[in-house]
Protein backbone atom coordinates (compact mmCIF):
# COMPACT_ATOMS: atom_id res chain seq x y z
CA UNK A 1 0.00 0.00 0.00
CA UNK A 2 1.61 3.17 -1.20
CA UNK A 3 0.76 6.75 -0.40
CA UNK A 4 -2.60 7.90 -1.73
CA UNK A 5 -4.04 4.43 -2.13
CA UNK A 6 -7.35 3.25 -0.88
CA UNK A 7 -7.31 0.96 2.18
CA UNK A 8 -6.69 -2.69 1.38
CA UNK A 9 -10.12 -3.76 2.53
CA UNK A 10 -11.95 -1.27 0.34
CA UNK A 11 -13.65 -2.96 -2.61
CA UNK A 12 -15.51 -0.58 -4.92
CA UNK A 13 -17.75 -3.35 -6.23
CA UNK A 14 -19.08 -4.07 -2.74
CA UNK A 15 -18.68 -0.80 -0.87
CA UNK A 16 -19.68 1.64 -3.56
CA UNK A 17 -18.32 5.20 -3.48
CA UNK A 18 -15.39 5.61 -1.13
CA UNK A 19 -16.21 7.27 2.15
CA UNK A 20 -12.97 8.57 3.70
CA UNK A 21 -14.65 8.77 7.11
CA UNK A 22 -15.37 5.08 7.17
CA UNK A 23 -13.36 2.10 8.38
CA UNK A 24 -13.66 -0.65 5.77
CA UNK A 25 -11.94 -3.38 7.76
CA UNK A 26 -13.59 -5.92 10.00
CA UNK A 27 -15.64 -3.93 12.54
CA UNK A 28 -14.77 -4.36 16.22
CA UNK A 29 -16.86 -3.32 19.21
CA UNK A 30 -17.03 0.48 19.31
CA UNK A 31 -14.80 1.96 21.96
CA UNK A 32 -17.72 3.64 23.67
CA UNK A 33 -19.47 0.30 24.26
CA UNK A 34 -16.51 -1.45 25.91
CA UNK A 35 -16.43 -2.67 29.49
CA UNK A 36 -13.40 -1.40 31.39
CA UNK A 37 -11.75 -4.82 31.50
CA UNK A 38 -12.07 -5.23 27.75
CA UNK A 39 -10.10 -2.09 26.95
CA UNK A 40 -6.74 -3.81 27.15
CA UNK A 41 -7.63 -6.57 24.74
CA UNK A 42 -9.35 -4.04 22.50
CA UNK A 43 -6.11 -2.08 22.21
CA UNK A 44 -4.26 -5.37 21.73
CA UNK A 45 -6.37 -6.08 18.67
CA UNK A 46 -5.64 -2.67 17.11
CA UNK A 47 -3.10 -2.42 14.36
CA UNK A 48 -0.38 -0.05 15.52
CA UNK A 49 1.51 0.57 12.30
CA UNK A 50 2.14 4.20 11.32
CA UNK A 51 -0.14 3.82 8.30
CA UNK A 52 -2.97 2.52 10.48
CA UNK A 53 -2.49 5.47 12.82
CA UNK A 54 -2.53 7.86 9.88
CA UNK A 55 -5.65 6.16 8.58
CA UNK A 56 -7.36 6.57 11.94
CA UNK A 57 -6.42 10.24 12.04
CA UNK A 58 -7.68 10.68 8.50
CA UNK A 59 -11.01 9.05 9.38
CA UNK A 60 -11.35 11.29 12.43
CA UNK A 61 -10.60 14.30 10.28
CA UNK A 62 -13.17 13.32 7.67
CA UNK A 63 -15.79 12.45 10.25
CA UNK A 64 -15.37 15.94 11.68
CA UNK A 65 -15.49 17.38 8.17
CA UNK A 66 -18.65 15.51 7.24
CA UNK A 67 -20.36 16.37 10.47
CA UNK A 68 -19.48 20.03 10.94
CA UNK A 69 -17.86 21.47 7.81
CA UNK A 70 -19.29 19.78 4.73
CA UNK A 71 -23.06 20.06 5.34
CA UNK A 72 -24.89 22.54 3.20
CA UNK A 73 -25.73 25.13 5.82
CA UNK A 74 -23.08 25.08 8.53
CA UNK A 75 -22.92 27.49 11.40
CA UNK A 76 -19.85 28.98 12.96
CA UNK A 77 -19.34 25.90 15.14
CA UNK A 78 -16.48 24.32 13.12
CA UNK A 79 -14.54 27.58 13.20
CA UNK A 80 -14.96 27.86 16.94
CA UNK A 81 -13.96 24.22 17.29
CA UNK A 82 -10.84 24.87 15.24
CA UNK A 83 -10.13 27.97 17.31
CA UNK A 84 -10.55 26.20 20.65
CA UNK A 85 -8.64 23.18 19.41
CA UNK A 86 -5.72 25.25 18.18
CA UNK A 87 -5.71 27.28 21.38
CA UNK A 88 -5.50 24.09 23.41
CA UNK A 89 -2.83 22.66 21.12
CA UNK A 90 -0.66 25.73 21.23
CA UNK A 91 -1.15 26.06 24.97
CA UNK A 92 0.00 22.47 25.33
CA UNK A 93 3.11 22.89 23.20
CA UNK A 94 3.98 26.15 24.91
CA UNK A 95 3.24 24.83 28.37
CA UNK A 96 6.88 24.68 29.27
CA UNK A 97 7.19 28.43 28.75
CA UNK A 98 3.82 29.24 30.30
CA UNK A 99 4.85 27.54 33.50
CA UNK A 100 7.20 30.40 34.30
CA UNK A 101 4.30 32.82 34.49
CA UNK A 102 2.73 31.09 37.45
CA UNK A 103 1.72 33.52 40.17
CA UNK A 104 1.80 31.14 43.14
CA UNK A 105 4.56 29.01 44.38
CA UNK A 106 2.39 26.52 46.25
CA UNK A 107 -0.88 25.08 45.19
Amino acid sequence: MAFGDYPKEYNPAVHGPYDPARYYGKPDTPFGQLKLNEIGSWFGRRSKTPSAFMGACSRVWWRWQHKYVQPKKVGIAPFFQLLVGSMTFFYAINYGKMKHHRNYKYH
Binding site: V14, K67, K72, K73, A77
Partner: peptide, 10 residues
Protein backbone atom coordinates in the same frame (compact mmCIF):
# COMPACT_ATOMS: atom_id res chain seq x y z
CA UNK B 1 -22.55 0.40 2.96
CA UNK B 2 -25.25 2.80 1.82
CA UNK B 3 -24.32 5.69 -0.36
CA UNK B 4 -23.26 8.54 1.96
CA UNK B 5 -25.70 11.40 2.10
CA UNK B 6 -24.95 14.98 2.97
CA UNK B 7 -26.59 15.48 6.34
CA UNK B 8 -27.42 18.41 8.53
CA UNK B 9 -24.55 19.88 10.56
CA UNK B 10 -24.04 18.33 14.01
Amino acid sequence: FPRPVRGEPG
